[in-house]
Design a protein around this nucleic acid. Structure first.
Length: 224
DNA sequence: GGCCAGGACACCA
DNA sequence: TGGTGTCATGGC
């Protein structure tokens, strides 16, 4: 599979997924700050469990940068208990709000700057790796970066256009070098890939044995 | 009872 | 540099 093929295939997959599933209305958060918190909490956790944590934070009146900073670590851990890894995630939330504090909790200022250097800066925050950083940049800062997650890698592999190098950056380049850098486009595309990943069976979408064969043909094979 | 979910970090060879 | 263990709840 060469680059030219991906340039043809990737837009087609998008339009088919959109046709099949409709708009996903991501990110499901009420503010950019809430999006950032959700990006940390959803690490290796189901969104349902994250929603429980966000509701707990809201209920306690802690869903603000200063609110999280001023909450003792053990108390914060209890509030995000439902998301799993609660001790680790409480520390990560602290690190994130400490970083925001260096910009006087002004997200507009925090997100201002050259994109690549800003991405590196955000990835230096404890607990923020490439996927979380890109989720924050795309869904909270509205910057044109494509988010790569396990679903995306799995789907790309099944389609047969996986990059030769099995790294986050290689997968990201596959999308960003073949798609126009438009924020709503990247937003919807990633959300649709997650939706597809949740719908199809874990073996292979083209196996013909899973209960979602129709989705497979609409979402993937029809685009090939 | 086991597997998995919108990852990242620490440690070791 | 790459591989492995750890962090951990809730739903199916």
């Amino acid at each position: 599979m060469n680059n030219l093929d991906a340039k043809d295939i990737l837009p087609g997959i998008y339009s088919n997924l959109l046709k099949c599933f409709g708009p996903q209305h991501w990110w499901p958060g009420e503010s950019p700050f809430e999006v950032m918190i959700g990006a940390i909490l959803t690490q290796s956790a189901s969104w349902h469990n994250v929603e429980l944590s966000i509701a707990a934070l809201k209920g306690a009146g802690k869903l603000t940068p200063s609110g999280l900073r001023e909450t003792p670590l053990h108390e914060l851990a209890a509030l995000v208990h439902s998301s799993g890894y609660y001790n680790a995630k409480a520390k990560k939330l602290k690190a994130l709000t400490d970083w925001l504090g260096s910009y006087a909790d002004d997200l507009g200022t925090a997100f201002t700057g050259e994109l690549e250097s800003k991405r590196r800066e955000i990835m230096e925050i404890h607990g923020v790796g490439p996927e979380t950083a890109d989720s924050i940049l795309l869904y909270a800062a509205e910057k044109p970066v494509f988010v790569i997650d396990a679903y995306t890698r799995r789907t790309v592999g099944r389609i047969g256009i996986a990059p030769s190098e099995d790294t986050y950056d290689a997968y990201q380049q596959l999308f960003m070098s073949n798609l126009l850098p438009v924020v709503p486009y990247y937003n919807e595309y990633h959300a649709l890939l997650v939706k597809l990943g949740k719908e199809i069976c874990r073996k292979t979408p083209l196996c013909g044995t899973c209960c979602t064969r129709e989705l497979c043909s609409h979402g993937i094979s029809a685009a090939m």
